[in-house]
Amino acid sequence: MPSRAQNLEVLLSGVANGDEAAFAELYQATASKLLGVALRILRSREIAEEVLQEAFFKVWERAGDYNSDIASPVTWMATIVRNRALDEARRRVNRPTGDESELENIESDDEHPIAGLERAEDVKRLLRCLDGLESEKKEIVRLAYLDGMSREALAKRFDRPEGTIKTWLHRSLAQLKGCLEQ
């Protein structure tokens, strides 16, 4: 049986050829996950959906650029969503902090209930490597990647100078890279 990633690759190549049914199926298969990604960073459903709309439009236009040697379909699409969401978050300098009202339906736990069951090998390896970091550093990496926190926001949250945060980040990332290459 083809894996989920292989199915998505087939859909993406259909989209590259202008196949609208493939696009609809791709949307069905990935939109919820990608909205989750955008919403964690932007904390506003309205803005997150705008970002998702632009991202899917870009997927439609650029599906031909997708290269399965470089990234899995979900990683490729999530990168488009995250880049747009991060640009948007940094553009909105006065982003309301601490307003979690729109997040009430999102589990505070990172873990999605059934995710663990069918987790791919690369996810397991990354989580194992993350577990190798000190708990505070691991927390910082997750808050940055998943919640889009800037160095400044992290400095405030952990009550450290930005320079310290930057040093921590670089060390943690170097350690992660080393662990993933083992």
Binding site: K33, G36, F57, A71, T75, E111, L146
Partner: peptide
């Protein structure tokens, strides 16, 4: 780095988009 950190998005809980979002995307296309 996108390849290294990308798998982290698998741990994000999905959130269903509004029902009309797909139509908006189709209209834009």
């Amino acid at each position: 780095w996108e390849r290294r950190l990308g798998p982290l998005v698998e741990t994000v809980a999905p959130v269903a988009p509004s029902a009309n979002l797909y139509n908006k995307i189709r209209a834009q296309i």
